[in-house]
């Protein structure tokens, strides 16, 4: 559950028709963004609905850094006004369509950043971004052996030798 910080109206720019949101990152940076841009995030949309219900203005405190948040905002800005099937809650789940070219460039970041973006996207409920990040991570580990996967993504092997080599774990689990 996110924390919503009540703020003084004067601290929120865009009073009136411009519909701006104040997002506060975990490093305490205040980022003002148009509500329209962040409407791709179901989480933000729900928060905004809550604001309207209570007629109170709030800043939304988010548990990731401004650097990550800015990346997410960049993504949302790029697809502002676009319909993406993955983000449509009423649409059928999309198939394995080819990754969008812009997404490929956008996600050409180091693995730590990629993981932070996917966590942020998951937190903000931006399905299309989660899907693109997931595909990028899957591409990193595809065809790799178990050891290589552990090494690439820094996962600790917590299996006992018996568990790791037990016949049941090979196929039927």
């Amino acid at each position: 559950m996110p924390t919503i910080v009540s703020v003084d109206d004067s601290t929120v720019p865009g009073e009136g028709s411009s519909r701006l949101l104040l997002l506060v990152s975990s490093d305490n940076k205040h980022i003002v963004v148009e509500e329209d841009i962040m409407s791709r995030s179901r989480f933000i949309s729900k928060q905004v609905e809550g604001f309207e219900a209570t007629s109170q203005r709030h800043a939304i405190l988010l548990p990731f850094s401004s650097f990550v948040l800015n990346k997410v905002i960049e993504y949302c800005s790029h697809y502002r006004g676009y319909y993406l099937l993955e983000d449509d809650p009423d649409a059928a789940p999309p198939g394995r369509s080819p990754v969008r070219e812009w997404d490929q460039e956008f996600l050409d970041v180091d693995r730590n950043m990629l993981l932070r973006i996917i966590k942020a996207a998951h937190y903000l409920e931006i399905k299309s971004l989660v899907g693109s990040c997931a595909r990028a991570i899957a591409d990193m580990i595809r065809g790799k052996t178990t050891e290589e996967m552990r090494e690439i993504l820094g996962v600790e092997n917590d299996f006992t030798p018996e568990e790791e080599h037990s016949p049941s774990s090979k196929c039927t689990g």
């Binding site: 996917i118 991570i137 600790e156």
Partner: peptide, 11 residues
């Protein structure tokens, strides 16, 4: 090491 192991289950 990076925390992929602790990514949410859905992710």
């Amino acid at each position: 090491p990076p925390p992929i192991g602790r990514l949410p289950v859905e992710v």
